[in-house]
Write a protein that binds this DNA or RNA. Structure first.
Length: 490
RNA sequence: GGGCCAUUAGCUCAGUAGGUAGAGCACCUGACUUUUAAUCAGGGUGUCCCAGGUUCGAAUCCUGGAUGGCUCACCA
């Protein structure tokens, strides 16, 4: 006997006794296959034709009301709840005894006639029942449900049982991802899978997780983005690819950050960032419309309108609009620093013109943007994989979509010049050597791929969890991830 | 990582000045053959997050720690 079983509490002990009783009566408490003829929701929706007919349902008992020689129970299946009616005279002594000993949480298969009670509740008059699973632990309270957020995340299975709205969020999440796939597939994109374990983690500025492969005796990194592999596929001749899957970043946890998160990345040969703008607008608004039935969503008490077209404004214009400072007229890091400091910002010692503009943008503009807005023209220093703008080589043809003060998409014309790319990597390596753990590593094989020639292309990344947050109105990323990362208990 | 807050029965929560813990639901016993937060009668089932300290005495005060939430920093 384990320590766990010795510390068994009273409530569990009672159920263990009932489990033993069942076995003694020759009843298997953990049944097998059960062929259902219907579900709770179908019986209720189609009552007119179901009334009087015999149905077989299966599900969990979530409530029980006994009245002497008859009683009711609520059966919950994935579709919803339905009431069961047990009557001793009809079901017989032995089976009625089973009903009396039934615990909330037990999973049953039942067979009975559909009817409506005097009070109008559509119910099933049970004629037979089989045990499919005996529950040994008590469920949370029927009225308040499970509120303790820690328990809700740690034991999501209980959360899902007793808080129906949680289930709806994850059903919607599944629909969102399905609609994204439908959309991209219909546009001729090919879904691919690229390595999650990478010898050189690239495609984003982030600290990676490290793991070890024993047989090869080598360290591998969990990917921080699929980007560089997806672009290798463009080199290989795939013209429209996408991947929806997990990336991992070894950073802090917050309401907007989980160490593992789901991202969509897509690449389209012979396109550019403006094609990506049209695509972002159409993709996201289509998905919102299909999932919510409208192009507006409610988030934190605000209405956000995803109807195209979305506003398009350059980063420098946006900064000018909100701070009055025109960085077009400001040359070099020193002058930019003074301008930023005049705005009340503290700037790191070695920050460049582009980095400073980005900081000013994030500080003064980002939290003003509610409806989805394209911000384009990102500085080259913070965009090591994006193509330079033809008129201003200090800027790149890159944009982000900002909605509800947060980035929901990031896209650019892909840098396909191997010589420029090598220089950009070298700049990153320099920063890395200066102690920036999030700067890119040199990826010789990626350069090698570019040297074979990568078609001009547009690419885009969308954080799925954050998109789901907005569409479902969830304030925390943990509300849209079934099993968010937690410290283990004990 | 910093700041603030929380942790009491299976769940949701009270808790006096520091005096040895309580309610509702769940659970157990009994009554009740159409109830639905069923009702009625009876029963409290506890490592008050953990470890020290102060005190005659700590759920309560102090120190340290754990876990979680929010927030700032960083990022997507």
């Amino acid at each position: 006997m384990s320590e766990q079983e010795l510390n068994i509490n009273e409530l569990k002990k009672v159920r263990m006794d009932k489990l033993a009783e069942l076995r003694e009566a020759g009843i298997e408490p953990y049944g097998g296959r059960f062929e259902r003829s219907s579900t709770a929701q179908i019986v209720k929706d189609k009552f007119a034709e179901m009334e009087g007919r015999t149905v077989k349902l299966a599900g969990r008992i979530v409530a029980k009301r006994r009245h002497g020689k008859a009683g009711f129970a609520d059966l919950q299946d994935f579709s919803g709840n339905i009431q069961l009616y047990f009557r001793k005279n009809d079901i017989g002594e032995a089976k009625y005894e089973l009903f009396k000993r039934l615990d909330i949480g037990d999973i049953l298969g039942i067979e009975g006639q559909v009817f409506r009670t005097n009070k109008g509740e559509i119910s099933v008059h049970v004629a037979d029942l089989v045990y499919l699973s005996k529950s040994l632990l008590p469920l949370p309270e029927k009225w308040h449900g499970l509120k303790d957020v820690e328990l809700r995340y740690r034991q999501r299975y209980v959360d899902l049982m007793v808080n129906p709205e949680v289930k709806q969020v994850f059903i919607k999440r599944s629909k969102i991802i399905k609609e994204i796939r439908n959309y991209l597939d219909s546009k001729g994109f090919l879904e691919v899978e690229t390595p999650m374990m990478q010898p050189i983690p690239g495609g984003a500025a982030a600290r990676p997780f490290i793991t070890h492969h024993n047989a090869l005796d080598m360290d591998l990194y969990l990917r921080i983005a699929p980007e560089l592999y997806l672009k290798r596929l463009l080199v290989g001749g795939f013209e429209k690819v996408y991947e929806i899957n997990r990336s991992f970043r070894n950073e802090g946890i917050s309401t907007r950050h989980n160490p593992e998160f789901t991202m969509l990345e897509l690449y389209q040969a012979y396109a550019d960032f403006e094609v990506m703008m049209d695509l972002a607008e159409d993709l996201v608004s289509t998905v919102v419309q299909r999932v919510n039935g409208t192009m507006t969503v409610e988030f934190e008490g605000r209405k956000i309108d995803f109807s195209p077209p979305w506003k398009r404004v350059s980063m420098l214009e946006a900064v000018k609009e909100y701070t009055g400072v025109d960085f077009n007229l400001i040359k070099g890091g020193e002058e930019a620093r003074r301008a930023a400091e005049n705005l009340g910002l503290e700037i790191k010692g070695n920050a460049s013109w582009g980095e400073i503009i980005n900081e000013v943008f994030e500080e003064f503009v980002e939290d003003k943007l509610i409806d989805p807005t394209f911000i384009y023209g990102f500085p080259v220093e913070i965009s090591p994989l994006a193509k330079r703008n033809a008129e201003n080589p200090e800027l790149t043809d890159r944009f982000e979509v900002i909605a509800v003060q947060r980035e929901i998409a990031n896209a650019f014309s892909e840098l396909n010049d191997p010589i420029d790319q090598r220089e950009r990597f070298l700049k990153q390596v320099e920063k890395r050597n200066m102690g920036d753990a999030e700067a890119h590593m040199m990826d010789e094989d990626y350069i090698n791929a570019l040297e074979y020639g990568m078609p001009s292309a547009g690419g885009m990344g969308i954080g799925i969890d954050r998109l789901v947050m907005i569409i479902t109105g969830s304030p925390s990323i943990r509300d849209v991830i079934l099993f968010p990362t937690m410290r283990p208990r004990e």
